[in-house]
Nucleic acid binder design. Structure first.
Length: 430
RNA sequence: UCCUCAGUAGCUCAAUGGCAGAGCAUCCGGCUGUUAACCGGAGGGUUGUAGGUUCGAGUCCUACCUGAGGAGCCA
């Protein structure tokens, strides 16, 4: 019997197992709040309603002790969830010692303390709500691709080389050679797309960036669709459909969790297709007209992204950046070859880039030239050139950072709350 | 890598260069409807580390350590 199902058992005797979230005492009356992962419910224990030794055991119980209770469910207008449990029996499974009480009390705590106790902090209401929404988002992503005919083909985590830059890689020993933790599954997704047509990979990615901002983790999860014969327009359309689907699913199924997080739901309800499309040229004009100081030819900084995304009530797609500031594999715009056929999707409310994608170069000679220009070693990605030797076709795809999407939809201050155990530059514990 | 800020009780924070404190948590007592319950009492400190200035340093100075916020870079 789970707390979440309590409404269907009004008037009935049930057994609940879980943890003691809080215990209020009022003479011969105890008010334990029990949580079991599915929800929270307040119990009412009258001294005369249960055996004396069980009442005493409950009375001295510390926060987060594990226990089993038997009682009768009763609808009560005073209860936040609408129901209370009249307790008849209590069995303590493990009592938390008074010498070492549970550290996360129902009071305020600093972020440093909470991060050190992340393994326990997960039990609190906010993290629980965030993790349930994260779960819903990932489920929605998989359902979306499944319904659209995509085949999952996951990329390796141990890789022989970088696909964008070499400075941000985690190096690991691989027997007698060096390997790196993947920064992106894209190159492998391209190979899979040539086999399966429409494919995606979804897994952890790693960047040894010395970034220390609310938008950065060194280990984060990314979903990367890749589609044969797709143009930049196809990539943009796929991205807006995916994001709309995900937001809609969370609104449909996770209202209670959004309420716990005090998320402004109206902002999410505004997320409807089509998303505005803004060329890089226009983006520079818009940012500078709004008071920014963007120099043409450079990437958008965090402040620039905010200035631009504030102008829309839904995610904005910025396309056709100067090729010079983008990755080597991006197809140039045939009308203006100095621009890349790429797109970044910026989330509203200052949450920044959640999607980055492009049409890929399908011509082998051009690709080889770009690899040389970027001074990348060719030997580890010789296989990648094979994709342009054997039936090369135009294709494209994008990567969507899950934690940034979770952070945006949940309205979080920092992406580290969007993943169970965040990895940041100065913290790898717990 | 750079800039800024912080570190005092388990937690959140006070303390003009002059006796190291409060609330919560813990323990003891009270209360038959509490909602971060409330009321009374008790215990709890190498003020991040190492130096320095001073009659006197939690407070001022130097270095280091740990962490937080941001920049660049990125999803």
């Amino acid at each position: 019997m789970a707390v979440a199902q309590i409404a269907a058992h009004a008037g009935k005797r049930v057994r609940l197992r879980g943890w003691l979230y809080n215990l209020r005492e009022s003479g011969k009356l105890l008010f334990p709040i029990l949580r079991d992962g599915s929800g929270w419910i307040q119990g009412v224990a009258f001294k005369k309603a249960l055996p004396a030794e069980e009442f005493e055991a409950l009375r001295g119980l510390g926060q987060e002790s594990s226990l089993e209770v038997i009682g009768t469910v009763r609808a009560d207008a005073r209860a936040p969830g609408g129901f209370e449990l009249d307790i008849e029996h209590v069995t303590v499974l493990q009592a938390v010692s008074a010498d070492e009480p549970y550290p996360i009390t129902p009071k305020e705590h600093g972020i440093e303390f909470l991060l050190e106790h992340r393994h326990l902090w997960l039990r609190s209401q906010r993290p629980t709500a965030v993790l349930k929404i994260r779960h819903e988002i990932i489920k929605a992503v998989r359902d979306f691709f499944d319904a659209d005919g995509f085949v999952l083909a996951d990329a390796p985590i141990l890789t022989p080389a970088a696909c964008e830059g070499t400075s941000n890689l985690f190096e690991v020993e691989y027997f007698d050679q060096k390997a790196y933790l993947t920064q992106s599954g894209q190159l492998y997704a391209e190979a899979a797309a040539m086999a399966l047509g429409k494919t995606y990979c979804f897994g952890p990615t790693f960047r040894a960036e010395k970034s220390k901002t609310r938008r950065h983790l060194t280990e984060f999860w990314m979903v990367e669709p890749e589609v044969a014969f797709a143009t930049l327009d196809d990539v943009m359309h796929l991205a807006e459909r995916l994001v709309t689907c995900v937001v809609g699913r969370v609104l449909e199924r996770r209202r209670p969790e959004l309420a716990v997080l005090e998320r402004d739901v109206a902002k999410l309800e505004a997320i409807q297709m089509p998303f505005p499309r803004v060329s890089y040229d226009e983006a520079v004009e818009r940012v500078n007209a709004a008071g920014g100081g963007m120099v043409y030819g450079t990437d958008l900084g965090g402040a620039d992204e905010t200035l631009l995304s504030q102008q829309f009530d839904r995610p904005v797609m910025v396309h056709r950046y100067p090729a010079a500031v983008k990755a080597f594999y991006m197809q140039p715009d045939p009308e203006r070859p100095e621009l890349a056929l790429c797109v970044d999707m910026l989330a509203p409310e200052g949450y920044g880039e959640i999607v980055g994608g492009s049409q890929r170069i399908h011509d082998r000679e051009l690709l080889q030239r770009r690899i040389a220009e970027h001074k990348l070693p060719t030997e580890p990605i010789e296989w990648y050139l094979d994709l342009r030797r054997f039936g090369s076709v135009p294709h494209g795809g994008f990567g969507m950072g899950i934690e940034r999407v979770v952070g945006w939809i949940c309205g979080l201050e920092h992406v580290r709350e969007a993943i169970p155990f965040p990895r940041t530059i100065y913290r790898i514990q717990p």
